[in-house]
């Protein structure tokens, strides 16, 4: 048997883990804490407890309209990215198209290219072709950024699925669309669903594209928060931010149920 890890190192690891977890979670905890403050100022630890700022958010026209815009775009992006990304992933998985490997890399490229570079190009192209940006511009932009997530989750599920099911369906006389809809799509359903949740999250939290493509009447929640932070944030910003954190927590829970967060994290 080998000697185990020295005790002092174990102790150091525990301290290290606690400190790292603190750094990672501190901003979220602070925002959530400040949102329950009873005072006029954003502070942590909060001064007294109240739900006043949540009430204020829910009666604020600016926040509600930004929230509605964000929700609409996120839902549309979820649908378009899942549909387009899912279809592409199925084709990529079959590996029958010429240059499948480079095609996969091509599809994942929006993930590695910094969004600011894409955002500025999108703004300039749209302006030169169609004039001022619209809701559609933001929808398209968010879809492009979200598609790689759907492709990754769908490919991950497909790579562990039984490749012979589709062949079996073929031998049993299933037609092309039947095979696709009754065999392949159910096979990659968990991946598609997890991808859909990622797509929603990416779009709902996205700030860079939304900041470049903003105009009056086209303000998403992160842009609205950013605008408040540039001036003087009051605890209502913390309340909105806490709602966004809560939505993220729910989405992570859903993804974990569908795919296992561990599988996602280690690939």
């Amino acid at each position: 048997m080998v000697r185990s890890v020295p005790t002092w190192l174990r102790a150091a690891s525990v301290v290290f883990l606690i400190l790292t977890a603190l750094i990672l979670l501190a901003p979220l905890v602070v925002v959530a804490g400040a949102s329950f403050s009873a005072s006029q100022f954003v502070q942590f630890p909060p001064d007294g407890l109240s739900l006043e700022w949540y009430r204020k958010v829910l009666s604020s026209r600016d926040y509600l309209s930004a929230g509605w815009t964000s929700l609409q775009i996120a839902l549309l992006v979820t649908a378009s990215a899942t549909l387009i990304g899912g279809a592409a992933a199925i084709a990529l998985h079959r590996n029958q198209l010429p240059g499948s490997q480079s095609l996969s890399a091509l599809f994942l490229s929006p993930l590695v290219l910094p969004t600011i570079i894409y955002a500025i190009g999108m703004l300039m192209l749209w302006s030169s072709l169609f004039g001022p940006v619209t809701f559609l511009t933001l929808w398209i932009g968010h879809t492009v950024v979200a598609i790689p997530y759907v492709i990754r989750t769908t490919l991950a599920v497909l790579s562990e699925s039984d490749p012979f099911l589709e062949e079996a369906a073929r031998t049993m006389g299933a037609r092309r669309l039947q095979r696709l809809w009754l065999v392949v799509v159910p096979q990659c359903a968990p991946g598609l669903a997890a991808g859909a949740f990622f797509a929603f999250n990416v779009s709902f939290d996205e700030a860079v594209l939304s900041l470049f493509l903003r105009k009056p009447g086209l303000t998403t929640l992160p842009v609205q928060i950013y605008g408040q932070l540039e001036f003087s944030p009051d605890p209502s910003v913390a309340a909105v931010s806490t709602i966004m954190i809560a939505i993220t927590v729910i989405l992570i829970f859903c993804i974990d149920r569908l795919l296992g967060i561990r599988n996602f994290a280690e690939t």
Partner: peptide
């Protein structure tokens, strides 16, 4: 969202 974390 990076906006929320920066706020924190």
């Amino acid at each position: 969202s990076v906006v929320v974390r920066t706020f924190g």
